[in-house]
């Protein structure tokens, strides 16, 4: 029994003695491994929009009102500006819906081979975003429009809708998005 313990201890000490300081070069080779697996579910303006009072005609503070084609989603208005002082706004209006995905992965990866020979020349780290296999949309919609003012409740509000995009159901995709610094940072 004693013999066994001594043998074990001797193995331990041998391996412990084998630990050596790492050179800076060796330390440089150590990279963080592992990664992150993400699922997401985002619902925008299911019940109401950015208005706290109702605007003209269709624009509503709440989606619950009985008005047909109520505009109650989020609104992004960008002033395009110009020298003559015109004050028009480019608008993404009535942004609503639910968007979800399962299985987006984030990790770092060293590429030093493959890519038809590019990998060896590249020999660097990248951030790899593994794209989810599917994106689920549920009644996602937005309207692209031009408007005279930022908010529908502003005086003399006028808006021209250009088109409306509606997405429902599933989009399938595969692959990785590789992100890395270019040049010599």
């Amino acid at each position: 029994m004693k013999k066994t313990i001594i043998t074990l201890l001797s193995f331990l000490s041998v391996s412990a003695i084998a630990m050596e300081p790492m050179s800076a070069d060796d330390m440089g080779m150590v990279t963080g491994q592992g990664g992150v697996y993400l699922s997401g579910d985002l619902t925008i303006n299911e019940n109401g929009g950015p208005l706290n009072v109702d605007g003209p005609s269709a624009w509503q503070a709440s989606c619950d009102t009985a008005t047909a084609d109520a505009v109650c989603g989020a609104r992004i208005a960008v002033n395009t500006g110009d020298n003559a002082g015109s004050s028009g706004w480019f608008v993404l209006d009535n942004i609503r819906g639910r968007f979800s995905f399962e299985g987006l992965t984030l990790k770092t990866r060293t590429i030093n081979s493959g890519f038809e020979g590019d990998g060896a020349a590249f020999n660097s780290d990248v951030l790899e975003v593994g794209l989810p296999n599917s994106l689920e949309y549920e009644s996602v919609s937005l309207t692209v429009a031009n408007s005279s003012s930022a908010r529908p409740t502003d005086a003399n509000f006028q808006q021209t809708n250009i088109f409306t995009l509606n997405i429902n159901g599933q989009a399938n995709l595969q692959g990785n998005l590789l992100v890395y610094p270019t040049g010599t940072p």
């Binding site: 509606n166 159901g169 990785n176």
Partner: peptide, 27 residues
């Protein structure tokens, strides 16, 4: 410097299988 983006082994498909409710409409 800049940020480089590469899509590796990428494929994308939307709006397929309308019968099962997949829609991508411009109205």
């Amino acid at each position: 410097e800049g940020i480089g983006l590469v899509l590796e082994d990428f494929a994308f498909e939307a709006g397929e299988d309308v019968a099962n409710g997949n829609r991508l409409d411009i109205s």
